[in-house]
Design a protein around this nucleic acid. Structure first.
Lengths: 367, 367
DNA sequence: GTGAAAGCGCTAACAT
DNA sequence: ATGTTAGCGCTTTCAC
């Protein structure tokens, strides 16, 4: 029977055994313990079970930190987000957490205090100093907050996947196709017979807002319809701004017969303002939104809107970045960066049904 | 002039200088470089600036990993969350990220796939193996998902702060006072003259739901009013469940003159179902919700609801846990665990104003 | 004010 | 199948 005092460090803290303590208690070398915890085949069954017994008994837990240091690989992803207070980014984050867990990666999270932050160096420093294997930049493209990209070295230390932005050369970008989504909504309104369709844009320093607005304009122009300055106005995503925007449109474009709002919150305000201007939705005014927030099926009337799968954006981002990391690790020739555009879908509800029967006003939303 | 080949590792990867490379290039020892990057006073101004020059030039960045290993302290917090798809948890997370950044801590994020997960050991393993200095358990208390707490060792390796749960002995708990919040809503409805107040509860395996419901019942009973089984029903937080719940209440408790819903989404459905049952809100039916989601000011009528500052919960959690960590690090005698209950506030809007003038129906919500 | 030696906990590369 | 040596990048003694 081996004395436990052997090479045991006497000052060992309670509750945190080291590989050396395990080795000594099991009467083997640290290397053998390492082989056991990494499930390597070249350990005899007898030794393995003995070591495993000691591990259990001592409550030993390998240090991912030490492992990362020696392997120069941390199985950790850096995630930079912004605007967690609103729902979109958190959904993307949910997709990231789920897929990262499945892929065996931990997540180091940073949230930008503002969307329009240009000095991103400290964020990268913080992440890289902790040896992340890759970075997911899940910040919407707003204003000039992508300028720093052009200042970055051509070969970054770790792969970076960018979300929610205009695809660019030589970069990994994963976005929802906002233009397509808005186009789906517009084509639907046109097909339903609406002709004078107004637009409440999101803040136009957002790339997503510009995409949605471009689709609105193109759809009208392609149909030979009017899309002049009086036909649209800008909001800031909030219901409050939507209210002001709706009032403005009723004033400057009274002949409009439909409104396409850049998100559901602003569309909600249109639903509420319409009756005050003597319009019934959808008979006198068609309305469509964007996002498909959970409540939109319960607006009155239920809101036709564009569904974007933000959860999936996060999921795909992790899938891609882990592929890149694994490839680089295996020494595969650098993978060519590509952009991925995910297609949104249209959810048709009552707010765009101009021939709707008045009687079926309540009850469940139909989709 | 020193040859750069001196002690330089020739296989050094581009873009990642080590402290040794800096030392060698600056003609000093690694200790001196360490002193410079840690802003220790005992370095001559001349040496310091020379070293700093080399650091800039080489783009050297200290490895937080190596530092964590040797100092046995990572300046990293583990955050365990659940339900990022909905807004509450993300707001708390936003408070955590902001305060952690301010305190100089990084965040390792884990999301539970389900609320009612009882086998939490792997989560702790993952976090502790990465040497987190503390853990914030930001998972709502649902069903038996707190049972594992009683199985944990009395002295955990790192401090844990629990959010959104019933305060317990010898634990750090930070919660919103749901009972108080619901009581605020109920006392307000009673003060406005409503007497037969029904309740749509959240899922009753949630601690928060039970708190809100207890306050509903107590408020009625304290006023000598009825709070029997026909006066309430259970939803699942969704607007869809709220719709079914509202219908059920109109059937089983037709004499009700108000509804207190456990969240705003379910309250929204009450607002919509009321007209179908010949009730005008607020004249024939008062309605109050809980959460103050952004849209609730734009419901029609605008919704009276309870505001809970979930962002602040996250902020306070980080403040507390960093205090505990710093204290432990300085060897201060263990701080006595305590629970903190944060008070919600009531936001009074039109849906509870039974004497409201019909004319002022539209426009801006008044608060 | 500065440096040398030792070691945090682990694994890669070689022994045997 | 197992052990030895070296070292990941840094900090902590303790010298000088």
């Amino acid at each position: 029977m081996l004395s436990i005092t052997g090479t045991l460090t006497l000052t060992a803290k309670v509750g945190r055994a080291t590989i050396r303590q395990v080795a000594s208690a099991a009467g083997v070398s640290t290397q053998t313990v390492s082989r056991v915890i990494n499930e390597r085949p070249d350990v005899s069954a007898e030794t393995r079970s003995r070591v495993q017994g000691v591990i259990e008994q001592l409550g030993y837990r390998p240090s991912a930190l030490a492992r990362s240091l020696v392997q120069q690989r941390s199985y950790t992803l850096g995630v930079v987000t912004a605007g967690l207070r609103i729902l979109g980014p958190s959904r993307t984050l949910a997709g990231i957490t789920a897929e990262a867990a499945a892929a065996g990666y931990a997540l180091l999270l940073e949230e930008l205090p503002r969307y329009d932050l240009d000095d991103t160096a400290p964020i990268f420093e913080a992440l890289l100093s902790r040896h992340v294997d890759g970075i997911i930049w899940a910040v919407p493209e707003v204003g000039a907050n992508r300028n720093w990209i052009d200042r970055r070295p051509v070969q970054p230390e770790v792969p970076i996947v960018y979300l929610t932005m205009e695809p660019r050369q030589n970069m990994w970008v994963i976005s929802i196709d906002n233009y397509l989504g808005a186009r789906l909504a517009m084509d639907h309104l046109l097909a339903r017979g609406f002709r004078r369709i107004a637009h409440i844009a999101g803040p136009l320093d957002w790339w997503e807002s510009r995409q949605r607005m471009a689709a609105w304009r193109d759809a009208l122009q392609d149909a030979g319809l009017e899309a002049g300055d009086k036909c649209w106005t800008e909001g800031d995503w909030s219901s409050a701004s939507g209210e002001a925007a709706a009032d403005k449109l009723f004033q400057q474009y009274p002949e409009m017969d439909a409104v396409f709002a850049a998100n559901d919150q602003m569309a909600l305000s249109v639903l509420h303002q319409a009756p005050l201007h003597g319009r019934r939705v959808p008979h006198d005014l068609g309305v469509a939104g964007f996002d498909n927030i959970p409540e939109s099926a319960y607006f009155r009337p239920a809101l036709t809107t564009v569904q974007q799968d933000q959860y999936n954006v996060g999921k795909v981002a992790v899938e891609e970045i882990t592929r890149i990391i694994e490839a680089a690790w295996k020494g595969v020739a650098t993978i060519e960066p590509k952009s991925i555009m995910l297609a949104p879908t249209l959810v048709v509800r009552r707010s765009s049904d101009r021939l709707a029967n008045d009687d079926e006003g309540g009850g469940t939303a139909y989709e």
